[in-house]
């Protein structure tokens, strides 16, 4: 399966949440691969603590492959290449966890037919090997998003299911932006339809993920004054109402990730050690990642709206 991760604005936690989802799936025995399609800033290696691909690679990454400068894209096996001891060494029963980094010196490049064809080839090739390929796109409307919309509309990829995750923070601006990215003119649905996707069917493959969510009922907020809590509660209600109106409401949502200080300070994979041994991360965060990792494959979460 192909999963495309996108957000309208930067700083939503798209990459870090996506990385944690693939990590969780790998732990459950799936072969997973993470493709860095954030062409302007290929830094996915940093999340997996792979120093050799921290800012992309110079040995033929995604940019070079899609522009047919190399025959095979450079791949990093996270279980053997990560500098972080908690990620090094494949746990028993776990599947492959592979990162396909971008080029260190790469930038955005326009979508020409040969690039789309190469992208189709790449997805077919990876589907042979991986249960889940998560494609991390950059924030906003990009050439990369255009390219994958064009590629997934091609008949060669008809047998490979795909899904879209649109990340947004739980704020007014982010809700409006996320809705715009999907539904407005030149949004995902529009561009997809132009490439030959059926608009209604494409919409069924798109779900929203709320990040850095603060629940007014959370015990973490018990220190707040009652006036502050009341205000938060009201804001939250307004946001729900706004999200519903913008078709970003509960039915279109796949899951939400609570605000976690660890992720605010450092984009990283949250391993059990962070939750139970050093206790720097919250259990709720890993539960949210697990929930997302389950729902991505759960047909019930993707039934027609």
């Amino acid at each position: 399966m192909l999963v495309f991760a996108i957000s309208d604005k930067g700083g939503t936690g798209r990459s870090v949440t996506s990385s944690n989802i693939v990590y969780r799936r790998a732990l459950r025995g799936n072969d997973v691969c993470y493709l860095d399609f954030d062409f302007g800033s290929p830094t996915a290696g940093a999340i997996f603590n792979v120093s050799t691909a921290e800012r992309g690679t110079d040995r033929g990454g995604m940019h070079s492959y899609l522009q047919e400068k190399v025959a095979e894209p450079y791949r990093v096996d996270v279980w053997t290449s990560s500098d972080r001891s908690a990620l090094r060494g494949k746990p028993p029963g776990a599947g492959q966890l592979v990162l396909l980094p971008g080029d260190s010196s790469g930038g955005e490049f326009p979508t020409v037919p040969s690039v789309v064809q190469q992208c189709v080839r790449l997805f077919l090739r990876l589907d042979e090997e991986f249960d889940l390929c998560l494609v991390d796109l950059s924030a906003g409307r990009s050439y990369a998003a255009d390219m994958v919309l064009a590629a997934t509309a091609r008949p060669e990829l008809a047998a490979i299911p795909f899904r879209w995750l649109v990340y947004h923070r739980w704020t007014r601006q982010h809700i409006i932006a996320a809705a715009g990215l999907v539904y407005e003119r030149r949004g995902l649905l529009d561009v997809g339809a132009a490439h030959g996707h059926d608009k209604r069917r494409l919409a069924e493959q798109i779900r929203f993920v709320r990040t850095a969510v603060v629940e007014p009922s959370s015990p973490d907020l018990s220190a707040l004054r009652s006036t502050q809590l009341a205000w938060l509660d009201e804001c939250n209600r307004d946001l729900h109402e706004l999200a519903g109106r913008n078709r970003v409401g509960r039915t279109a949502m796949l899951g939400k990730v609570p605000l976690d200080p660890v992720l605010q300070w450092r984009e990283q994979i949250i391993v059990d050690e962070d939750v139970y041994a050093s206790q720097i991360a919250n259990e709720g965060t890993t539960r949210a990642f697990d929930d997302l990792a389950t729902k991505i494959f759960d047909e019930r979460a993707w039934e027609g709206l």
């Binding site: 025959a71 080839r121 077919l124 090739r125 589907d127 042979e128 090997e129 991986f130 060669e156």
Partner: peptide
Amino acid sequence: SGRLMGAVQDSARLDRKTPFKTTR
């Protein structure tokens, strides 16, 4: 060799469905 594998795998005669995931 890789390009050749790709050329065969892209053949329209194949249904492009893998019975199970394997690594080359």
